[in-house]
Design a protein around this nucleic acid. Structure first.
Length: 704
RNA sequence: UGAUCUGUGAUGUAACGGUUAGCAUACAAGAUUUUGAAUCUUGUUGUAUAGGUUCAACUCCUAUCAGAUCAUCCA
């Protein structure tokens, strides 16, 4: 028996260790705690699959707990949407719970803390409080209300609760340590006055607990064994534990907070705030726009729950910052749909094809397999006739051997039908091809078993019969952003990277008649094109399809290679890029200097104009650094003239905000050496001189 | 300037002191093909750097470098 050892992620290892240390397996319990202030996205899916996955592997309950402690931002609409998404993903929660269910318990505990002298009412303004809080590098100081008597605190807190004070006039704070290196421990706020109606408790409460006071205690009430959250909560753990210490009963299970890295996807953004902006500013059509990384967007786009779960599984979970390639997500959906989606024929850019030797008025209904990957899927009939549509791109009057499609005098098979030969074309006055005239070989009918039908021709095309074709609208989506990590550039608004071409609507498409029966949400493979589903905008008279994802297209790659062959790869530039790569890895000042010298030497061979064109497409640190080093080599001049201003300005602007400090340094150096550019970045540079963490950069800026 | 955390190919992850650093994606080549898809086979790229501990280091220690997080009456 080959017993395969499944590798555990670090959280599973922690759980295993806890069990080994004596934790009763029966006591394992998890939770998924969304705040109902937005829609779930693919990043949440990681957390969902993690928590519910652990529930499944350990046969432990998983609670769905809405963290609804801020009535200003939360709405029932979101609660419903979150529940729907979770169910759609295929997960079942043990209990549906709300932090607001615990408001009374939390209040009672707060009273205990006050009585123990561990909490006090502060009546200062938020500005005063912020001032006393200190900074990460300087300790805070105690405020004047810190030593109020228990009686006074109790009385004030009671009045806060009863609504006798205005919002902002008082808060309840934990009394911990104003000098703690952890800012969160400097007397954090437990309650604030908020005279807002809550979506569940109405106007019962005038005070609402803060996240830190709520979360750990809620975990404790629910007896959650492992409270898993994202990395940015790491500093909260100390507070989480402190709050638990105050009310913890040693006979009960004590929850444990552990943190993992949130999942990021390339070419999109993943924060609720930014997604909300895209919706509010009309950049997308709603939370469920098929370009959105939300669960509802992916659903509308045609993704399956299976694919999303598979993605979370193979992407895994760890503690390092990551930007996962969307290609991985796309692989998951293609893999799933390949096995499940029925194949159909649709023509997106039609051109008319006439079979001159096929009888006028004749119609045949040919067999077509629904899915060769699935033997149980059966077959359907598709109508064939004298006049057909094929894709414009599938025909060329002349083409080389690599073009497997139809060309004059050439043969090709029509999928599920006959082998045809192109004889002539009809053009309109503009020279545009309007008809392709072909002959067909009657004996070559698919599946007929004749010698002619078994003959192999290199290309196979999809088609639809004109008289039977159903018109359709097809929406083609592309990535929403042009940049791999649009929100990872300091100071640049992520919206600057919006891809203006992320949606193309095609209203000239035709699909085979079997699709008339299809209903909203149905998924198909349009053969040779991609996977598509029926959008919710679709009606009986106007079929609307979304392209979920295109099929892999090797032909496009071959073609691209041919067209790109002329500007042969520049060996000098490759060399420069290699040197820049070594620069980034090197830790020796000396080595770096010698690398710079090599690049300076090479810069003599680089053409100024070419470099300026290249700069536009820079993505990686290596590229940025290479180009900047060339700029700074002194061999290429960059006076501000019209032809370079645009590219170089954009490039330098981005470079100044790259994460890598070598890149930023070189960009600063460039601006330092080329005074003409300085004004363009004045604001940015002043921000940098204050905030940049790299001392070399700050020093360089001082020399300006 | 401080505290805390994190660095494994192009990307995401595994190996928890002991084979040649594994898996998946991506990329490339070939086979196959009535989808230039899928499938199959093969291949390419990696432990941030420098020291140390050890018979043995991706793994432990130190330093350096790089990145992230930390002051909302948000969560």
């Amino acid at each position: 028996m080959p017993e395969e050892k499944k590798s555990l992620n670090f959280l599973e290892q922690i759980i295993e260790a806890d069990i080994a240390a004596g934790l009763d397996k029966e006591k394992l319990r998890f939770r998924f705690p969304p705040e109902p202030n937005g829609y779930l996205h693919i990043g949440h899916a990681a957390s969902i699959c993690l928590n519910f996955g652990l529930g499944l592997t350990y046969n432990a309950p998983v609670n769905l707990r809405f963290d609804d402690t801020n009535p200003a931002k939360e709405e029932q609409e979101y609660v419903d949407a979150i529940k729907y998404d979770l169910q759609w993903l295929g997960f079942k929660w043990a209990n549906e719970l709300y932090s607001s269910d615990y408001f009374q318990q939390l209040y009672d505990w707060a009273i205990i803390l006050i009585k123990k002298g561990k909490a006090y009412v502060d009546s200062q303004t938020s500005e005063e409080i912020a001032e006393q809080k200190g900074t990460p590098t300087e300790p805070g100081v105690n405020g004047p209300n810190r030593d109020r008597s228990v009686e006074e605190n109790l009385a004030l807190f009671e009045k806060m609760k009863n609504g006798e004070f205005k919002e902002g006039s008082h808060i309840l704070r934990a009394k911990i340590d104003m000098t703690s290196p952890n800012m969160l421990m400097r007397d954090p706020i437990m309650y604030r006055i908020l005279k807002k109606s809550h979506h569940r408790t109405g106007t019962t409460w005038n005070i609402y607990p803060m996240y830190d006071w709520t979360h750990g205690e809620s975990d404790y009430i629910e007896q959650i064994s492992h409270s898993l959250c994202t990395l940015e909560f790491k500093p909260h753990r100390e507070l989480y534990d402190w709050f638990l210490d105050q009310i913890y009963d040693p006979n009960k299970l004590r929850p444990k907070q552990r943190e993992f890295a949130r999942r990021n996807l390339s070419y999109t953004v993943m924060s609720k705030r930014k997604l909300l902006q895209l919706v509010n500013e009309g950049i997308v059509k709603g939370w469920d726009d098929p370009r959105m990384p939300t669960i509802s967007g992916l659903r509308r786009r045609g993704y399956t729950p299976n694919a999303i779960r598979k993605f979370s599984e193979i992407a895994g979970i760890a503690k390092r910052d990551n930007v996962t390639d969307v290609a991985l997500l796309e692989f998951c959906i293609k893999d799933d749909l390949n096995k499940t989606a029925p194949r159909v024929m649709a023509v997106l850019n039609p051109v008319k094809l006439v079979l001159t030797n096929y009888p006028v008025g004749k119609e045949e209904w040919l067999d077509a397999e629904n899915n060769p990957e699935d033997e149980t899927s059966g077959s359907r009939k598709v109508p064939f006739s004298r006049e057909l549509y094929i894709e414009k791109e599938d025909f060329r009057e002349e083409a080389n051997k690599k073009f497997f499609r139809l060309k004059l005098g050439g043969e090709v098979r029509l999928k599920n039908a006959y082998i045809i030969k192109a004889e002539s074309v009809v053009k309109d006055p503009n020279g545009e091809i309007v008809e392709i005239h072909c002959t067909y070989e009657a004996a070559s009918k698919s599946g007929s078993g004749t010698d002619a039908s078994l003959r192999r021709v290199k290309g196979t095309l999809h088609w639809v019969s004109i008289q039977h074709a159903v018109p359709a609208e097809v929406r083609l989506y592309d990535r929403l952003f042009n940049d791999e990590a649009p929100d990872a550039h300091k100071g640049i608004d992520f919206k600057d990277f919006i891809n203006a071409d992320s949606l193309r609507i095609n209203r000239n498409a035709f699909v085979e008649p079997s699709l008339k029966e299809a209903t909203i949400g149905d998924r198909f493979q349009f053969q040779r094109l991609g996977y598509f589903n029926i959008d919710s905008d679709s009606t009986a008279t106007n079929l609307v399809f979304n392209r979920t994802v295109a099929l892999r297209d090797s032909w496009a790659k071959i073609e691209k290679k041919v067209t790109n062959a002329q500007p042969k790869t520049d060996t000098t530039m490759t060399e420069v890029l290699n040197l820049a790569g070594r620069y980034l890895k090197s830790r020796e000042e000396e080595e770096r200097l010698s690398l710079v010298a090599s690049i300076t030497k090479l810069s003599e061979k680089v053409e100024r104009q070419k470099l300026i064109e290249l700069v536009e497409s820079a993505i990686s640190n290596k590229e940025y650094l290479a180009y900047l080093l060339l700029f700074n080599s002194g061999n290429l001049s960059f006076e501000k003239d019209e032809d370079i201003v645009k590219n170089v300005n954009v490039f330098i602007g981005k470079a100044l905000q790259m994460k890598n400090s070598y890149v930023r340094f070189q960009a600063v150096d460039f601006v330092g050496n080329n005074k003409a550019y300085r004004a363009d970045y004045a604001d940015l540079l002043s921000v940098m001189s204050r905030e940049d963490k790299n001392t070399h950069i700050v020093e360089r800026l001082k020399k300006f």
